[in-house]
Every structure is written in C-alpha cells, then in structure tokens.
C-alpha cells in the first residue's frame, strides 16, 4: 500500500485537523454521488477506497491502535438499477448496461418491437452513459410523458437536468463573479474624487 500521507497529499507532521481537512476535500471530490452514471465510476470508487484506507491508517497509528473513523457510508453507495422489467429483453438490456456493454444494449433495443416508456428510458440510459446528454434527455422526457407515475424515469431526468459532476468546486471561483480590473479602477477613481473634495 502507498504511504497514507502521500495518498492524502499532506506532510507526515501535519496536524490532525489538516489531515481531516485533506481527507474531507478528497472524499468530496471522489464521492460516488459525483460519479453517478459516469463510465469512470469504478476508478473513482477505487480511489475512494484508497483514501478511506489511508485515513483510517493515519487515525489508527495516531490514536495508538484505536478504531478508524472514515465515513464508511461513502464507500457503500454503488448504484444499481433497481427497476423491474416485465419484458425479458429489457431485463437483458439492463444487464448489458450495468456491465458497460452499450453496443449490445443498443442492439437489443434496436431489435425490440415495443416502443413503450421503458424502451425510451433504456435508450436514454444508454445515451447518457455514452455522454450523449441531448439525446438522453429527449428519450427520458418521452419516457416520463408516456408514464408520468414512474419514479425511476423522473429521477433519471431530474438528475440529468442538474448537470452532473460539480466541476466548479475545485478551488477556483467562477471567473465572472470576481472583481475585474475595471471595477477596482472605477471604485478607486470614485474614492479619489471624494477624497479631494474639501
């Protein structure tokens, strides 16, 4: 196993608070919720496991053998499609999607004769997994309008509409909300004018 301090990116003499902060930062970044329906979810999960183990290791050595206290809930939320399919073909499609075999899922859907709500939902899922968000949204919307009572379809659509991975939370603020040079200059000029009024 790698050095736990290297994994968390802190110095070995860092304080407990610093370690905790670094851990929380990384855990937030690689949280399974951020990789929901992301083809790289397995890599993020492995990373998350590594971080948890590193944190537990540090806590254990520092407390002299006490139990670890990483957020165990973070590791155990691998999502699975729990929808029930009445059609055996759709069950196969769901299995193919979960296995990451999108070509097979698409082929099965292409040969299926029905074009019901579930078909649209599964087409949408395949598109979404491929990163084809626009097509996925159209299929999900069709699925929801054909079967408005289905929670699974509605949840998929609302998740898509939220926009996926929160890339903004990475230490940078969005550039357009900051002060720009002109703002600073104009306020300084105004201040200057006021100061000169005697």
């Amino acid at each position: 196993m790698n050095d736990p301090y290297t994994v968390l990116g802190v110095a070995p003499n860092a304080s407990d608070d610093e370690v905790k902060k670094a851990y929380r930062e990384l855990a937030r970044k690689y949280h399974p919720d951020n990789y929901h329906d992301n083809p790289l979810a397995d890599l993020a999960e492995a990373k998350m496991k590594e971080i948890n183990e590193a944190y537990d290791e540090i806590v254990r050595t520092r407390s002299g053998g006490g139990g670890g206290s990483s957020y165990s809930s973070y590791t155990s939320s691998s999502s699975s499609r729990a929808g029930a399919s009445s059609d055996p073909v759709f069950a196969q499609v769901r299995a193919a999607i979960n296995a990451g075999d999108f070509a097979r899922a698409e082929q099965l859907l292409g040969t299926s004769s029905s074009r019901n709500a579930e078909w649209n939902f599964l087409m949408g899922s395949v598109c979404y997994k491929k990163g084809w968000v626009d097509d996925a949204r159209s299929y999900y919307q069709r699925a929801v309008s054909m079967d408005p009572g289905n929670g699974e379809y509605r949840q998929a659509l609302s998740y898509l509409n939220m926009g996926g991975y929160p890339y903004r939370d990475s230490g940078y603020g969005p550039p357009d909300t900051g002060l720009d040079a002109c703002d600073v200059c104009t306020s300084l000029m105004c201040a200057n004018l006021l100061c000169r009024c005697r």
């Binding site: 790289l40 626009d134 898509l160 996926g164 890339y167």
Partner: peptide, 20 residues
C-alpha cells in the same frame, strides 16, 4: 438552455476524468 445543458454535462465529465 438545452445546448447549455449538453455543454455543462460534458464539462463535468471532462473534469471528473481529469481528477482521475
């Protein structure tokens, strides 16, 4: 808004891949 959503999702998937 539809176009924005497509761009936004791809930006997210790009960043998530970069972190890995």
């Amino acid at each position: 808004e539809t176009v924005r959503l497509s761009l936004e999702n791809s930006l997210g998937l790009m960043a998530s891949a970069f972190e890995l």
